Amino acid sequence: MKFKNLLITSLCAVLIILQSCNNPTASGSKGTSSNKQITATDSRGKIISLPHEAMRIVVLYNALVDDVYMLQAGDKIAGIPQQVYEMEDTYSFLSRLDSRIRNKSIPTPTFGGQSGNAESIVGLKPDLVLTFSTDEDNISQLENLGIPVFTFSSLNDEKILEELKNVGKLLGKQKRAEEITGYVSSEVKKMRASRETSPKKIYYAWSKGRIMSTSGKGSLIDMAITLSGAQNACPVPVEAPNISAETMYKWNPDLIILWNSKLSDVYSLKELAALPAVKNKQVFVMSPSFPYDPHTVKFMLFAKQLRHWCMPEYTQEMLDEDVKEAFEVMYGKKGLI
């Protein structure tokens, strides 16, 4: 009986060993699923790990939707912000890349504004959600539900490039990400090495008519202004200071740049009527805004548009040619703009 029990035990052990050798998930075996794990670090410094490249993603901010289409991963999108359909220039351009955008058939799991509906997001069964690091409530809710969230910060040029490369890994588009970031890095290097500089000071006003809200030293906009070769009129090292008309006169910018605002938002302000930039009609609207979104790698084009406004020698024709070339590289297609 003892011999029989020993024989049975030995046979079981052999079967377990054989099964382990043939099991693709066994530790140490080649081609294991653990070897297929894809990892990338997001803006929080958190390592996001997926068992395979993301196949269904929900994107909660417009700029990040743009990033996904640049990576040629639009087919993976399962949900987008409602604003993609509402912003005319964004909708018009992305409609040319995806018939689902054109037909407005991609779900929009948002309440309106940038507020995401966690229940609706979960219902779309994403294996990855893309959002900004400031979207703390959604991040916490979704991660508590076991949904991986990759966050962006877009703090500066280095972060934008790094974050695009990292999300490219998770989407199985690492080569595309390298192509885009390599090109943008090269263009930025040329701009910084250029002797084209201007003593002009630029005041940047926030969107939706918030003329007395600007971007200070160390901000993303400050980086783009500096890259253009001009100077940020705001000397305050604060991300988003609110100022008075008296402060505007004290800073005395040469140009005022508007984003998603109207010229009348400035020209109708009686308290700014005597400001030299206003009197000299040196107020410009970054419109259409889509080609110059500074929260994406197009911060480089934002800076080039500023350079054109500050330096007449960098002509409209030169800017148009640069934008055309950049779009061909960024989206991997010709004739988009």
Rank of each mutant, 00 (worst) to 15 (best):
F3M: 14
V14F: 11
V14H: 01
L18H: 03
S29M: 12
S29D: 01
Q37M: 11
G45R: 01
I47D: 09
A54Q: 00
I57M: 04
L64Q: 11
V65N: 03
Y69D: 03
G79D: 04
P81K: 00
Q83F: 08
Y85N: 02
E86G: 09
F93G: 07
L94M: 11
R100V: 01
R100G: 00
K104C: 07
P107A: 03
F111E: 13
A118E: 08
E119P: 08
V122D: 00
K125E: 03
K125T: 04
D127Q: 04
L128K: 00
T131G: 12
I139F: 01
S140G: 07
Q141G: 04
T151I: 00
D157A: 15
I160F: 04
L164T: 08
L171R: 02
G172N: 02
Q174P: 05
I180T: 03
T181K: 05
G182Y: 07
Y183L: 08
A193R: 13
R195V: 12
T197K: 15
S198T: 15
K201L: 12
R210F: 06
T214V: 07
T214Y: 06
I225D: 05
L227G: 08
S228W: 09
N232H: 09
A240D: 06
N242V: 15
M248Y: 03
D254V: 05
L255N: 03
L263D: 11
L269H: 10
E271M: 15
V285M: 11
P291N: 00
F302M: 13
L306P: 06
H308W: 06
H308N: 12
Y314F: 15
D320Q: 13
E325Y: 12
F327W: 11
E328V: 02
E328W: 01
Y331P: 04
